[in-house]
Design a protein around this nucleic acid. Structure first.
Lengths: 113, 113
DNA sequence: TATCTATATGCATAATAGTGCATATAGATA
DNA sequence: TATCTATATGCACTATTATGCATATAGATA
């Protein structure tokens, strides 16, 4: 069942959860610590994120490990693409950014808050 | 006043309005036709989009012409960038294509508008 | 001036969404 | 078996949000 992608990201607590998941597979308890709300709330947010396709779950003993799925991000990117003309005159600027990235490969792994 | 970017996009009617605005400056009446809700509702959605930085207004006689602003889209793109690693394979293929393009003298460079 | 058109806003209402508490479920361990 | 841990869910409550109706405001035109 595909709940709305944008609405899933509309809630700041859910975004915090998603951002926490960038570090990789995470159990619910750890997400509760970061979220700042009750465990039951986190559980429900995870359900919403799951319905929207943002996360997948894997049981590990009594825990459940959540991780990010690429699809909705790709979807979002595709939606956004229609608006790139608003701020991007030339493809070459993007190409330049890529080129820079290519030269320093270790730039964006699990950083940022 | 900067209202939340994601929340502004969470409402489907607002997204319809934004998508309609891709065609360029539009008066409120035309947006009402597309939105399928009452004029007052559209007006309020436009206020929200304006507060979130998505649109700017320009008076034209008794009408008000709304148009898209690039900033929040850029913002969204920046947020999304942190998740590009999730579907990097496709990304790299695209990068390779761009690289090829860059090396070929056939490319249309310097097409500034 | 009065009046018409286009858009914005106050108010009430109904639907939705986020939250915590208590409890249910599922798996582990004694 | 009983019990402990981790996560999910039913329920009630509250806050927020989208909406329409009526009206206000602003500009145009007679």
């Amino acid at each position: 069942m595909h709940i709305d992608t944008f609405q899933a990201l509309a809630d700041p607590t859910r975004r915090r959860i998603v951002e926490a998941l960038r570090r990789g597979e995470t159990e619910v308890g750890a997400l509760v610590d970061q979220a700042g709300i009750h465990q039951s709330g986190v559980s429900r947010h995870l359900r919403i994120l799951n319905d929207a396709g943002f996360v997948s779950v894997r049981p590990d003993g009594q825990r459940r490990l959540y991780s990010l799925r690429p699809e909705p991000f790709r979807e979002l990117d595709a939606w956004l693409a229609a608006y790139r003309g608003l701020w991007e005159r030339r493809f070459d600027r993007f190409a330049a950014a890529l080129e820079k990235r290519r030269q320093s490969p270790n730039t964006q792994r699990g950083r940022r808050t």
